[in-house]
């Protein structure tokens, strides 16, 4: 998991009404937290959505904010979670310029090392898909930086409890 001790994962279960995302992000903004990543999806329960929010801030202020999130009527449950309690993943897609022959084998070698899936190979570029924790994605990104990255996108953290 990420080693950054100032990152907290807050998992919030909400009634899936329009406007809930707005209210949650509004409250987080009000406490002047920056959202590192946020994912929303349906859950095993109909009508209930699950937010995985990664925020930066010390434990005490994150705790205070979580308590305030309960004031939102649609919020059913909140868990602030420590990295050791969860299995967290994110997915990234990266499109790298592989038109230069001399780079190609190095890029492919690195991709193999990271066990990255090749999604598409074209004469001008290759698209990779990587699933893992943030550190793994960061590391792969760092390795690719010396080549020309044409597009890079990641989903943000999503997590389940152990």
């Amino acid at each position: 998991m990420t080693k950054d001790s100032n990152l907290s994962t807050i998992i919030v279960w909400v009634q899936n009404n329009p406007g809930v995302l707005f209210k949650l992000s509004g409250l987080i903004r009000r406490r002047r937290f920056n959202i590192e990543s946020l994912t929303v999806s349906h859950t095993e329960k109909p009508g209930i959505s699950r937010f995985t929010i990664l925020v930066r801030g010390n434990k005490k202020t994150v705790e205070k904010m979580s308590k305030q999130l309960y004031r939102i009527v649609e919020v059913v449950k909140i868990r602030e979670s420590y990295d050791k309690e969860i299995v967290a993943r994110e997915l990234c897609l990266i499109k790298v310029d592989t038109s230069k022959k001399e780079d190609r084998s190095d890029i492919m070698e690195t991709a193999k090392h990271f066990r990255v899936k090749v999604v598409q190979i074209k004469p001008k570029y290759t698209i990779f898909e990587l699933t893992g924790n943030e550190d793994k994605i960061d590391a792969f990104y760092e390795n690719m930086k010396k080549y020309r990255i044409m597009e890079f996108v990641r989903t943000g953290r999503t997590a389940v409890f152990k």
Partner: peptide
């Protein structure tokens, strides 16, 4: 109205 009042109400409806 729902947007504007979201931060100034306990809850709101459209």
């Amino acid at each position: 109205v729902v947007g504007i009042t979201s931060m100034a109400t306990k809850h709101n409806y459209l």
